[in-house]
Computed example of a mutant assay.
Amino acid sequence: MGRDLFDSNHFFKRHMTDFDEQVEALAGFSLLDTVYNNNVKVVDPFSDPLKAGLSIYMVETSLVKMLADYDIRPDYVIGASLGLVAACTSAQCLSQEQGIRLLIDHGNIFKENCQEGKMLAILESVETYNQSPLLCEYSELAAINFNKSIVISIPYQNVSVVEKYLKRSNYSFQALPVSKPYHSQWMDAVQGRYKKIYNSINYSRPSVPVFCTVATEVLDSISPDSLWTSVRGCMQFEKTIKCIEDVGGGRYIDVGPSGTMVNFLKYILPNNAKSKAFQLLSPFKKGNKNLDSLLNDCQVNSVNSSYVVGELR
């Protein structure tokens, strides 16, 4: 999660360290000790709901603040899944401390009350899913990334049946590094607890437009319902991007920890699109090179910038 940038960019390091100090004061542990543990490989799953959510939020908000240090600020933000919390922080609807407290409660509820399961990314279309009685019965559609790329959620007791079916059907699929069936009916048992948390927060009006990949439109205001929908509903990334392209598009900056969303944009944006997509982080330690590329483009081209925040989870 951006170790090369952490070691070389004093802006990013300062914001990550400040965030870590807040988490340690509120939760009693250091995220940096977990994220930058030398005994953990970059490809190792990071599936603990509490630490995973906080770590992704830490990276996203620190990147946004680092970009502001370079005088790069978003004209709008896009939140995918729990990335909506970081999007709301970027849009000044939530303070960083409010976001940390929310995600601590969020993670603890998931760990203690939500059943185990999997999320599988499949290189097939929505039509393929809808035409399979077995998939419709034993799983739920969690995300439509772009044509021929979907994600399904499965409770633990159904995983074996679904994976055997996918292998038998010669479908290409990969498990996401999560331990819960997010964005599905198997979260509904915790809805009441979540709404109680969301209702305890005072939300400010967004300083820039906030897009949610479930609602696929601008959220005029942030509410308990919109936050719940962002983690429960089916994410529709392609549809959201097309809505933004319809009003002019611009420069998409992926502030997630792995560059997943930029990869999706390569398949969504047409070849003649004026919009550009930039990622900052990747598992292959290209943070400084990616940042230089973005900074150079910002000096040359004056276009709207949007921050795409969130991982598929």
Score class of each variant (00 low, 15 high):
1 M>Y: 08
2 G>R: 08
3 R>T: 12
11 F>Q: 11
17 T>M: 04
17 T>F: 05
17 T>N: 12
23 V>R: 00
25 A>V: 13
34 T>F: 03
34 T>N: 14
40 V>C: 10
40 V>S: 13
46 F>V: 07
51 K>W: 10
53 G>I: 09
54 L>H: 09
68 A>D: 11
68 A>E: 14
68 A>T: 07
69 D>I: 06
75 D>Q: 14
76 Y>L: 15
77 V>E: 04
78 I>K: 09
79 G>I: 03
84 L>Q: 15
85 V>C: 11
85 V>R: 04
96 Q>P: 03
97 E>P: 03
103 L>D: 13
104 I>H: 10
108 N>L: 15
111 K>M: 06
120 L>N: 07
128 T>P: 01
133 P>R: 01
140 E>Y: 14
140 E>A: 15
141 L>G: 10
143 A>D: 10
143 A>K: 09
144 I>P: 09
144 I>A: 14
150 I>A: 06
155 P>Q: 11
159 V>Y: 14
167 K>R: 15
184 S>V: 09
184 S>W: 09
185 Q>Y: 13
186 W>S: 09
189 A>P: 06
194 Y>W: 10
197 I>E: 02
199 N>S: 15
202 N>C: 07
224 P>Q: 03
227 L>R: 02
230 S>C: 03
231 V>A: 06
231 V>R: 05
232 R>C: 01
237 F>H: 04
239 K>P: 08
244 I>G: 13
251 R>D: 14
251 R>L: 12
254 D>Q: 04
255 V>K: 14
256 G>T: 07
263 N>H: 12
274 K>Q: 12
285 K>I: 07
287 G>C: 08
288 N>T: 15
290 N>F: 11
309 V>S: 15
